[in-house]
Amino acid sequence: MSRLPIARYLFSSHTLFLIMFLGAFYLLVAVVVAVAALATPITLSGVDVAGQALHWLALGYGYSAATLLTTMIVHGRTRREFLVQHPLFQVVTSAVLAALITGVYALEAVVYRAAGWTRRLQDHRIFEATDYPTIFGAYWSMLTVCLMTGAFLGAAILRWETAGALALLPAAVVVVYAGAANGLFSLPFARVGLDVAVTAVMVAAGWALLWSAVRDMPVRIRVPA
């Protein structure tokens, strides 16, 4: 029996699912870019433009963690285990996905060069097109923060129902401030450049919020009709 059963389950199923999802996502991006190339000259990085959707997808996926917690408790696990093992899954899976995204940036560079297309990133990015370590760091930061914050939002709304919507306020602070650090959710007034310390503090803040919602949350189950 694994010492980390929740993490083991998540790595064996959810991480694989997310990798496949991301693969399908970039396949779709490739198709869209190819079709666009028939009509207009390509000047922007398709991978970079599509990256704008990833933090929303990560938030949405993180949101589902609250339902997952209920399932874990029904199968005999505890909130405390979940609060340790789900963040572990988030950090590791975010790293895997960030590495995959970085690889896609590199692949795109080769394809654009071969096709003779111009490849420009969005202005607010904190990395250059070939600065792969920073690309990896920025996406890892963004994915981890969004997964954690989404999990907090889901837990807050499951626990406090309508009043849980108030959780949007601290969640927004975490996402926007961390976004200022990784440049992937960047607002004009908040841009600090990739900062590991800021990311770490925001992930810790997200975890603290998640802990406050989950630590003694009663199990409420909703079944589809």
């Binding site: 399932t71 408790i73 696990r77 505890t78 405390r80 199990v219 189950i221 079944v223």
Partner: peptide
């Protein structure tokens, strides 16, 4: 919040959560 106990207890309710 004691996994040593909860893993030895199983409650199946009519409202799912499995």
């Amino acid at each position: 919040e004691n996994a040593a106990a909860t893993t030895r207890i199983c409650l199946i309710r009519d409202d799912g959560g499995l």
